[in-house]
Design a binder for these strands. Sequence first.
DNA 1: ATGCTGTTGCCACTATCTTGCAACACTAGG
DNA 2: CCTAGTGTTGCAAGATAGTGGCAACAGCAT
Lengths: 144, 144
Amino acid sequence: MDAALRRSRRAGLRNTAARRAILDELARAVGDQGHLTATRLHHALLARGLTVELSTVHRVLAQLVELGIAHTVPVGRTVTFGLADDAHHHAVCAGCGDIRQLPAAAVAASVAAARAAGIEADPSGHPTGVVVYGRCRRCRTTTH
Amino acid sequence: MDAALRRSRRAGLRNTAARRAILDELARAVGDQGHLTATRLHHALLARGLTVELSTVHRVLAQLVELGIAHTVPVGRTVTFGLADDAHHHAVCAGCGDIRQLPAAAVAASVAAARAAGIEADPSGHPTGVVVYGRCRRCRTTTH
DNA sequence: ATGCTGTTGCCACTATCTTGCAACACTAGG
DNA sequence: CCTAGTGTTGCAAGATAGTGGCAACAGCAT
């Protein structure tokens, strides 16, 4: 997380309280599910007594994604954010939104196929990656 | 498309003008890009002189997805819909939203990895599938 | 200490999707 | 062909998420 701050500094971003708070929150989320929506992250900050505007959260997250420090995973009709610590990809339960990680090696063939189709999924840092949408066991058994 | 109608009928859905119009519009889109947002589909209907409420479009699309007749691909912060005619998957340009198709075989390893992680990506019909997010050539060259 | 410039808060606003409800229209059955 | 039953729709209000302008503020290099 500190590395992320240095990296953003190098890119010309300033070390502000808001940015620190957001990076810290993303780092905490790793323990949980690994990903947060902007709104949820905002709530988490407020719950910790940190006053940051929601619009600021959006702006900072956009910057972090742009730099490749954070990455996004679309879930339903929102977007979740996570630290782009590794070259991992994601499997998402379309029912509950749960996100699991997939090793890069496992998705190599998909990335290659996308490249063949003209979509480059690895220009380091941009909002890219492989997402497998499916259902976790619980969501497969309960409710239809 | 007619098959889709029969299939929806079998599921207990009625053959209404709105449903026909929406299925037809989805079928037309295949020629273009293959996918539409709910709003765009709505506009297209209006342009053709068909009066269908936007809320109806959403409701019908949700039913079609539920039945596996249509499938969804999250793009940015919206969702696009397409006919689930084949077992194909998708590559999306995060820049312009362009969608290309990927053969099922190419993503098999990703699906297997997701399954190993507890996410089943193939319970026939549900909003599932593999999406590779990346950048098309044009979006890679113009503006960073 | 100071100035330049990135950053934030505030707030109004847009876009997208959802929901309740009453009227309507498919379908099957008679 | 008519009718009852239930799925569907239009309408309108509202919820949710994200955006953009602008003035005040705050890093950071000098």
